[in-house]
Amino acid sequence: MSYVKPKFRHPRLPSNRLGFTVADYDGAISTLCAGCGHDSISAAIRTACFESSLPPHRIAKVSGIGCSSKMPTYFLGKSHGFNSVHGRMPSVATGASLANRDLTYVGVSGDGDTASIGMGQFVHLVRRNVNMTYIVANNGCYGLTKGQDSATADLGSVSKYGDVNGFEGIDLASLAILQGASFVARSFSGDKEQLVPLIRAAMAHNGFAFIDVVSPCVTFNNHNGSTKSYEETRAHLDAMPLDFVPMREEIKAQYDEGTSKSVTLHDGSVIHLKKAVSGHETDDRQAALNTIQDANKQNRVLTGLLFLDPNSQNLNTNLELATRPLNELGKDELCPGSKVLKSINEGLR
């Protein structure tokens, strides 16, 4: 890094339940382009972790390769991070989660990293219901190699070079729902009000939580004709607002009856969905898919919590792992010793 982020913070910054201020969740200064949607996602993750009072060092950040995957450097500087190889973050996250089930895992990926080179690993990550939050910063293009279309670019979207995309875009949210994901949401990097509670809910969820975040690329995909520009996204945004109430807090806000619905998560936290926009049901996979399809037909970018199974079982439970993290086990628990080996020898005669 060529320059250093100032450490100074206002002395009266509010602190959370653990006594941390939001500055304790900062990372290094971003080297992404000014105005990049990804920086807003970084900020939202930071705020979400602060608001949920998560101890920073008990979070592990994982990513693949690309502009999106650089992001973990820019938040949670007190957390370990792993910038792995292109499209392979899912497997690294799976292994990490098996080794220590007690940490909170945040994965950050991009549309190239997930929908192209990493598609194989992504669907299997979904299928295994690895206990983690997986955020795709989706800008429909390859930023780091200067603006080629990605597999999530919408049919008919115009690239910076004037080419019209002739291929159907991959909708990762629909795919995740179809593949059995237990928490699927879509959001917009410019909608902090929605994104922060979504991330908090995702992190509280027991199992795989997927958030597809439309995050415009200011340098290569923010022009007229692009369907993932700031202007275009804002013009067609159809946001379903929500609140997240962690398990230790009481529900303070009052909602008018009939306009909202509460879903309790595994750990006792509550997601409060306001049905102001669409009257969408989150517990029905098929209904969720239909709602997304309907919105697509009407050229609307539907954001919010799309599907949730609050009773999901994560990979660790599914594999019947003991509660103590595997990386804490030592010789006594792991090595059967010479007597057992003698009896094994006997069986081989």
Binding site: R88, T94, L98
Partner: peptide, 12 residues
């Protein structure tokens, strides 16, 4: 191999 790398990184 990715899973092995992730687990090894995390101390298992």
């Amino acid at each position: 191999m990715g899973m092995v790398v992730g687990a090894g990184w995390n101390g298992a």
